Each structure stands twice: as C-alpha cells, then as structure tokens.
Simulated assay, not measured.
Amino acid sequence: MKKTVHYFCFGVDDHTKQNLYYFPSAQPKIQYIIDTLKNNEYMVNMVSSCSIKNNGFFKSKIYKVDNNEKHVFFSSFKTPLKVLNKISIFMTFVQFIFYMLFCVKKNDIVLIYHSLYYIRPMELLKKLKKVRYILEVEELYSFLDDNTEVFMDQEIEFINYGSAYLLVNDLIDEKISRREKKAVISYGNYSVPPKISCRNFEYHDYINVVYAGVIENRRKAAFIAIESAKHLNEKYCIHILGFGEKSDIINLKKRINEINKELSEERIIFHGTKSGDEYSCFLQSCDVALSTHSYDKKDLPAADYSFPSKIITYMANGLKVVSSDVRSVRYSKIGRNITFYEKNTPEDIAKSIESLEYVSQVDSREKINELDKQFKKNLKNLIDEF
C-alpha cells in the first residue's frame, strides 16, 4: 500500500491562486517536491496555509487532482480591522491542529515547509500529540530580516525539533543541531524544461544578458544589473524580467531610460513578468544570466541560510550564470559551474560577463539533470526509512 505524505506548505493551484495570498517564487519548488513525491509513488495531500488575499471570506476547499494528489485549503477571512484578522490567523491554527490530529494516520508522513507561521500551532500540537515530521528548510528567516530577529531562539528550537530535514543548501547544518537526524539537499526546482525555439525574439544580433526575479531596493539585484550595462560594449543587451512593488518598478524603469539615453541606444529592456513556456522560451534565447543580490557586511552571513533558486532555473534553461560570491552557492555542488564576481560593483559584474567563453559547448542542463536524479533517490530513501 502506498504511503501518504501530508505536505504542509503555502501552495496554490489554478482553483485558488486568484483568491489567496501567496509568493510566486515559492511555487515552482513546491510543485517540484509534489511531483518528486508522486514520481516516487507516494500519495500526496498538499495542505495549504495560504490565507485570503482581499477583504472577504474564503471557505475551506478540497480538490482531487488525480488518484495520487489532493489539495486542501483552510478557511480564512480578511477585514479592514487588524484585531479581527488576528482571529482569522488563530482560526487557521485551529484547522491545522485539527487536521494533524484527525487526518494524519499512524504510518503517514508529515512534511512541513518551514515558516515562522507554524511555530505557534506546533507548540500547541506537541502538548496534545507526539509528532514526527520532516522539515523543509528553505530559509532561516530570523537571520535574514531584522524584523524577525526576535524569533531567532524560537525558530532554531522549532527547526531542531524536526525528525529529518530537506535543506536548501549545504551550510545550514552549521546552524542547526541535526545530530544523527537524516537530511537531503535540494537547491531549487530541478525540472529541466524542453528546448524551445523562440521565434519572436528580436535581439539575436546581441549577446543577451538576463536578470529574472524580484525587483526591490533592499538587495538591489535588478538595479545593480542595469548599471553594469554602462561598462559593457555595444555587443551586449541586458533584459530584466521580474515582479515587485509598484514604486520599485517605476524607479527601475526610470533608471533604465536614463542609462539608455546615456548610451544613446536601447541596451536595457524591461519585459515585465513571464511564466510557463513563454518564460522558458525567453531564457533559452539569452546567453548569460545574472544573480546579483547585493549584501553588505552585516547581511552577508545571512546569505548562508538561503539559496538563490533563480540560479537553478537559469541552468535548467542552459544559461551561463554570473553571481555574487556567496558561500551557499560557492560551496554547493554547482559552484564550479558559476562565474563569481568579487567586488559588488557594476564594473566587476561587467568584467565577469565579458570573461565568459560564449562558444563553449558545456550544457548546464546536464548538471541539473544529475542533481534531479540524485535528489529523487535521496528523498525516497529518506521517506522509506522514516
């Protein structure tokens, strides 16, 4: 009989993504985990803790995807009053505990996507039932954000209580007390899309450089990427794909226009967001991709407790990657496949881009396929022995 894995996370599907608040960047990894579990012949119940996006009430829903996959969504509501919204959070805690008590059977597997959200309900649940779970650690939040630093001790305690781990990089072991508990590592979504011919791509006369990801001022990734255009020769064109706050996108577009005027030609282009085949098609039409998050000395150690998953997406689409020199990437299994720049300046980024050998036949897809096969094997062994 197939084992059932209850995957507690912040996933959405086509039925719910219009109504629930979620992080687009987290969805590919969540779906990849689900697909990997099904590939290993487990039944998967994705139990989502996403809450309603706008004012109103969202009624709990259950969708059967196929014979091996089911999606469960908790009820939530939102009002203009913050006090009432706290009641909604408590209501989702109760639903989580109820599900764990009455829907998770003795031999079922519990996989929890690590979030500060789960700390409180798990503290309550532990008083009612002994729970063993695999914890998927994508980030250590209290190390990444000053606003969550007060939760550091609670977060570490919650992580240490896990019975086994799915870790996002090779360095998190340095911070958690894993002892003899087993762990497997996945840097991101290892799904390799098919090669797609992009007929409408208009920039074949250039060496095309792309940044794809969040646009925000704190770590300035997209902003420093466009500044590098001033230090590249006329053979290069920089493309920005991404999402973010409206004010940040307005500022980015303004700066792009200013730089293009300085260069007397359009060498930086903002394309907005793309997804699915359109996204893969665009990436595969480019030559090199950028991971240019900027860390000051205070924030740099925090980069050890996450992984820029965009690098995996870039490599899965056959791109060469230029990245800031963060330990989580350099000491990963793909570190040798990345071109790092030392100084976090537009000049140094441009030098690294120009140093690449563009006629190389090395296909980064092969490395991602290798990681995919190994991860599927390791995850199956972890669950079978759990």
Rank of each mutant, 00 (worst) to 15 (best):
V12Q: 09
T16H: 02
Q27D: 03
I34T: 09
E41K: 13
M43T: 00
V47Q: 05
S48V: 11
N54T: 13
S60E: 15
K61H: 12
Y63M: 08
N67S: 09
E69C: 07
V72N: 08
F74T: 11
P80F: 06
K82R: 13
L84G: 04
I87K: 12
F93R: 06
L111K: 05
L111P: 06
H114E: 09
L116F: 10
R120G: 04
L125N: 14
L125F: 14
L128K: 04
S142I: 10
F143I: 10
T148H: 13
T148S: 15
M152C: 07
M152W: 08
E155Y: 05
N160E: 04
I176N: 04
K182S: 12
A183M: 03
V184K: 07
V184A: 09
G188P: 13
G188N: 03
S191P: 01
S191R: 06
P194M: 03
P194F: 02
H204G: 11
D205Q: 13
V209G: 02
V209I: 10
L232M: 08
E234D: 14
I259V: 14
E262D: 14
L263N: 09
L263W: 11
E265A: 04
E265K: 09
E266R: 02
S285G: 12
L290G: 08
S294K: 08
P301N: 06
P308H: 06
S309D: 00
A316D: 09
V321E: 05
R330L: 14
S332W: 06
T339M: 02
F340P: 14
E342D: 15
T345W: 07
A350D: 05
I353M: 01
S355V: 09
S360W: 03
F375Y: 13
D384V: 00
